[in-house]
Amino acid sequence: MEGEGRSGGPPGPAPQPPLHPAVAPLSFLLGRWRGEGEGGFPTINSFRYGEEIQFSHSGKPVIAYSQKTWKLASGEPMHSESGYWRPKPDGAIEVVLAQSTGIVEVQKGTYDAEKKIIKLKSELVGNASKVKEITRVFEVTNGELSYIVQMATLLTTLQPHLKATLAKL
């Protein structure tokens, strides 16, 4: 029968909206990335983890970000966070993140679209009893996304905390 199976079901995937000009310089981030990382801090034991990050856009001048990690041996969920990245035409960027631990971050920084580097520093770390500052540096080199996260607490100065390398899926 003509038209059979075309009504009553869920719609197909929506077409991807056009890339907003503000997002275009960071389009190299868009997509899903997966890999492994390692963490540590003077006050905790070192650990390794699996990770997936997704960057997406809706046609607006913002990139949606979501991240999740898991224990490599068991697959048990660890940390997750999500938020929005707002690149500005002058190379500045604003990021807001909510972490599964209840911490929220407002970060500001810069991006270099040609070198594919984003540098962020916390303006605010909210709802954190001990964390006072977080920096993040993301870089895409040879098709891999790597990052380094540093953290300062009430008891420590800025120290390396996390680093990972991910490949685009």
Rank of each mutant, 00 (worst) to 15 (best):
P13F: 05
P13A: 10
A14F: 05
A14C: 11
Q16L: 12
P17L: 04
P17G: 08
P18R: 09
P18F: 02
L19R: 06
H20V: 09
H20M: 14
P21E: 10
A22V: 09
V23G: 03
V23W: 03
V23S: 03
A24D: 01
L26D: 00
L26W: 00
S27A: 15
S27I: 04
F28K: 03
L29F: 04
L29I: 06
L30S: 09
L30F: 06
G31R: 01
R32M: 00
R32T: 08
W33S: 04
R34G: 09
R34F: 10
R34H: 13
G35E: 04
E36H: 13
G37E: 07
F41Y: 12
F41L: 03
P42M: 11
P42S: 14
T43S: 14
T43F: 14
I44H: 03
N45W: 09
N45I: 05
S46R: 14
F47P: 01
F47Y: 10
R48Q: 15
Y49F: 13
Y49H: 04
G50D: 03
G50L: 06
E52F: 13
E52T: 15
I53T: 13
Q54I: 12
Q54F: 07
Q54R: 12
F55D: 00
S58N: 15
S58D: 13
K60C: 04
V62W: 05
V62D: 09
I63W: 03
A64T: 09
A64Q: 08
S66F: 03
S66E: 10
Q67D: 09
Q67Y: 04
Q67E: 15
K68Q: 10
K68L: 09
K68P: 00
L72F: 06
L72R: 05
L72I: 13
A73K: 14
E76A: 14
E76G: 11
E76V: 12
P77N: 09
P77I: 09
P77T: 11
P77E: 12
M78A: 14
H79P: 07
S80I: 04
E81F: 01
E81W: 02
S82T: 14
S82D: 14
G83L: 05
R86T: 09
R86K: 13
P89G: 04
P89V: 00
D90H: 02
D90P: 00
A92P: 01
A92D: 11
I93C: 01
I93P: 01
I93Y: 00
I93S: 00
E94L: 07
E94D: 11
V95Q: 00
A98E: 08
Q99S: 11
S100R: 07
S100N: 14
T101R: 07
T101Y: 07
G102K: 06
I103N: 08
I103S: 04
V104Q: 02
V104R: 03
E105G: 01
V106C: 02
V106F: 02
V106W: 02
Q107G: 05
G109A: 06
G109W: 00
D112R: 05
A113D: 10
A113M: 10
E114M: 12
E114H: 12
E114S: 13
K115Q: 13
K115A: 15
K116Q: 13
K116C: 05
